[in-house]
Design a protein around this nucleic acid. Sequence first.
DNA 1: CTAACTTCATTAGTGCGACGAACGTTTATG
DNA 2: CATAAACGTTCGTCGCACTAATGAAGTTAG
Lengths: 157, 157
Amino acid sequence: MSPAPEDATPERLRAIPSRLLAGAATAADRLVNERLAAEGARKWHFAVLVALDETGPASQAELSRRTGVYRSDMVAVLNELADAGFLVRDPDPVDRRRNVITLTPAGRARLHHLDALVTTAQQDLLAPLAPAERAELTRLLTLLNAHHRPPHGGGHA
Amino acid sequence: MSPAPEDATPERLRAIPSRLLAGAATAADRLVNERLAAEGARKWHFAVLVALDETGPASQAELSRRTGVYRSDMVAVLNELADAGFLVRDPDPVDRRRNVITLTPAGRARLHHLDALVTTAQQDLLAPLAPAERAELTRLLTLLNAHHRPPHGGGHA
DNA sequence: CTAACTTCATTAGTGCGACGAACGTTTATG
DNA sequence: CATAAACGTTCGTCGCACTAATGAAGTTAG
């Protein structure tokens, strides 16, 4: 037979870093989202919960900066988390433009649960790599992110 | 003063591979798209042109497999490329379900042009890495893609 | 040969993530 | 005090990944 399992992505395309990154990111996102979706969560829910747990109550704008979620999109995320009782949104008495977002005990429990899911998803993602390779990949990606993420507003011009 | 360059993404978030991948992929895509958009192109245009140049005329379904572009989305991409005169879409005489997509001379020229843009975009993307690191990153990403890309339809199985 | 299955091109539509524009409110600054 | 800036919010855009459904054209099985 050999009916030609013509999968053959051209070598020229295969070797392109931006394409490799896009593919890996898609696979990674799918893995994480599958796991989280099973619990009715998405990755920003997790990101916001982590940010709150790590640095304490914060305004929405600050959460946005910490997590990388856009201010516009943050609103919906917080609505969902608040509706589920994982955090509370109170007006800030010292600056009435702001809301103070605070994690609830239920939110902290939720975080621990989602944390486990995300952690195993990372392990599955990196399964084909040896421990040293995982560390190296993480290091290289961190370099790329740092370089192409001027600490705000596109920096370089 | 230290007016608080409160950038601080929590360490717990920073260290997550799937997040690093997403960030790097976004930066990479932005770089490539910026360059291509200046010429009225998008990354799929480039991918399709490469596939045609590399392996010759093909049906749309085959191009879809080669480039990773969904069949549904391929239609629009080919329309745009055909409208610009970079390729022609002819009915396949031996299998009248198919269209044979063929690169025109103008398409080949376009490809060479876009190729230059994409190449420099890759260099800019990997600028913060040493040559050996670039190779290593590419290798690791290739491993991830291979592992999480069971030759088709996502399902693997 | 006919019926059932599959492939192909195409259209339309979903969901999500990234992002911009604008508005009203509130706080800072000149 | 006037003006600018930041905040929360709503609405809308664009691109990508992906599903569903349809009509036409091949393929396979009885």
